[in-house]
Design a binder for these strands. Structure first.
Lengths: 135, 135
DNA sequence: CTGACTGCAAACGTTTTGCACGGTA
DNA sequence: TACCGTGCAAAACGTTTGCAGTCAG
């Protein structure tokens, strides 16, 4: 997968700052704005928060990134993939992507609501195995 | 169900403003901060947004209200009920509560994640029947 | 070379805080 | 009566905007 080309196809220039955001999200999976800012500062000490916001927003606009809203927490951002659910640890806040077969609940929801559904956003909360074993 | 007593049990006084917020959420189901403010202004023309915020927050703290985070929209607030999913119309923004049997996906999610899950937050997006028929 | 991007500072919108007054219990 | 809650104004946040200089294509 070539990020540079994908950005250019959407009329976004492949600047070092932008590519770093993509790289960081690719490696870490999910980060909130502050976390992205802090990491980018390592590579670009004079980077501005405004640049982070502008880039996040422009890449969301082309559906290259997605915002994930999590109950009682700040939103995090991720590279857009096929639809999937998230599992969040209530202790350490680690976030995991999982691919669920949602056909059953989508059918249920359609019948109950009579809405024509096309998207679902599913977040589970719980304790990860690491935090469980630590007591 | 007696709201006044429930509030008192949690050391919150049953002020007219607070009771109105509860009443409005009971009747309308889901409202965001601005909507609550606008409605409350009818009954209390001099009410302050700060009062709305303080009350929403104090009632969330005692789990009397819940915040519902919806992708690409402002959060809305509702009276806390038993766990349920939400269906949101992407055209008119109407929100519906639905009770799903989530045991299957919770099982899936537990197996895939190895997290000890205790809560799920599910929001579907789609078009409601009214908006569908209107084209 | 040109338009898009960066970084700074200022503006903006939202939420929180401090305080004097008023109302609930 | 003792506090808690209200409403106002100010402060604190988080995010967006405008602009001059810089860089990618």
């Amino acid at each position: 997968m070539n990020y540079v080309e994908l950005l250019k196809q959407n009329n976004l220039k492949a600047t070092p700052q932008r590519l770093k955001i993509v790289e960081v999200l690719y490696m870490k999976g999910h980060l909130n704005i502050d976390e992205i800012y802090r990491v980018l500062k390592n590579s670009f000490p004079s980077i501005s928060l405004a640049t982070i916001y502008k880039n996040i927003n422009s890449m969301i606009e082309i559906s290259f990134l997605s915002e994930v809203k999590i109950p009682q927490q700040k939103s995090v951002y991720e590279l857009t993939k096929s639809e999937h659910a998230h599992v969040v640890c209530s202790k350490c806040n680690s976030i995991l992507d999982i691919e669920l077969d949602t056909s059953d609940i989508v059918t249920q929801a359609s019948k109950l609501s009579h809405y024509n559904l096309d998207k679902s956003s599913i977040v589970f909360n719980g304790i990860c195995s690491e935090c469980s074993s630590k007591g």
